[in-house]
């Protein structure tokens, strides 16, 4: 269980995290979603006691992380996989971790196997690919079998096998009753793995709900239609009250509708349709919409609170 309350972090003029509150529950994969620069890493760093909040608290199992005597037994975390001494071997890196928390040496070998590091464990980290470094970080996170796991963009740099492996791992960890928080800037990625989503934008909480609820909320589909008679179709759509605009001479975009509706209307108007697709609004797009809503909701403040 992770509890975040009123968490705020200011870097000079930049409000990286702005009064964030949410819980991460055990037994579920919670996706921590937000576009680049939204404040995901900063939030995770504060949870792990690396950065000092400007205000607010983050508790793991009811206590600040920085108070833990044996943190690896409670929280396993992977932040930046590049943040390791490149001159050490992966195995020695894990040995250091094990010593800090009094973890028996055999767990090091188990973690190496679990993370699929294999013979690379004996080589210096300098020669590791990004994917290998991710696996090393995950091995360290799993070293002491913790109840809480925090991963910052663990999919980055992994090949298809690696991505599948991570998805399976996250699922299994949550099914075993652990608390799993995993950040990403890709909704498409999270929708396959996360049970819940905490969505942030510009440091503020945008949504905190189940993945299904959020996907439904974002669900306003757009339809693109290509036709040789775009003029009559556009007029017909607008007459029916659709929001539609011209993309180019032969193509229209219609908001908040389905392919069936547009196709039926085209048929009724006897307009030939050459191509018809539904496009899910891009996440970045949705974020911008959601974030600007969010600002307005709070009373039309200027973009940054200074």
């Amino acid at each position: 269980m992770i509890e975040v309350r009123g968490l705020t972090k200011r870097y000079g003029d930049v409000l990286a995290v702005d009064d964030l509150s949410f819980d991460v529950q055990p037994g579920k994969v919670t996706g921590f979603l937000g576009p680049n620069g939204a404040g995901k890493s900063t939030t995770m760093r504060m949870m792990l006691g690396l950065d000092r909040p400007t205000s607010g608290t983050a508790l793991v199992n009811g206590r600040p992380f920085a108070a833990l005597a044996e943190p690896l037994r409670e929280v396993g975390a992977l932040l930046d996989p590049g943040s390791v001494h490149p001159g050490r071997s992966g195995r020695n890196h894990l040995r250091v971790a094990a010593r800090t928390n009094g973890i028996p040496e055999r767990r090091v070998e188990q973690a190496i196997e679990l993370a699929g590091l294999g013979s690379a464990a004996g080589r210096r980290i300098k020669g590791y690919s990004l994917g290998m470094r991710q696996r090393l970080g995950i091995a360290a996170a799993l070293l002491a079998d913790p109840r809480i796991l925090v991963f910052d963009e663990p999919i980055n740099g992994l090949d298809l096998d690696g991505v599948r492996w991570i998805r399976g791992l996250l699922r299994r960890l949550a099914d075993e009753g652990r608390t799993v928080l995993v950040s990403s800037h890709l909704l498409s990625e999270m929708q396959q793995t996360a049970d819940r989503l905490v969505v942030i934008g510009r440091g503020r909480l945008i949504a905190d709900a189940t993945t299904d609820e959020i996907l439904r909320g974002l669900g306003n589909l757009q339809v693109r239609v290509r036709t040789s008679e775009s003029g009559p179709l556009l007029a017909g759509l607008q007459a029916k009250g659709f929001t539609a605009q011209r993309v180019d001479d032969n193509e229209l975009q219609v908001d908040d509708t389905t392919a069936e509706q547009v196709g039926d209307l085209a048929h009724a108007l006897q307009v030939p349709v050459h191509h018809l697709t539904e496009v899910q609004q891009s996440l970045e797009h949705a974020y911008i919409a959601l974030t600007s809503d969010h600002v307005e909701y709070h009373g039309g403040r200027p973009e940054e609170t200074r």
């Binding site: 006691g49 992380f65 108070a67 943190p71 690896l72 943040s83 390791v84 490149p86 971790a97 928390n101």
Partner: peptide, 19 residues
């Protein structure tokens, strides 16, 4: 200082958060 040059201070403080 190598911990600061390499970022190794991040895992170091994750494993020993009592500074």
């Amino acid at each position: 200082t190598s911990d600061y040059a390499t970022g190794g201070i991040v895992p170091a403080l994750q494993w020993t958060p009592r500074r």
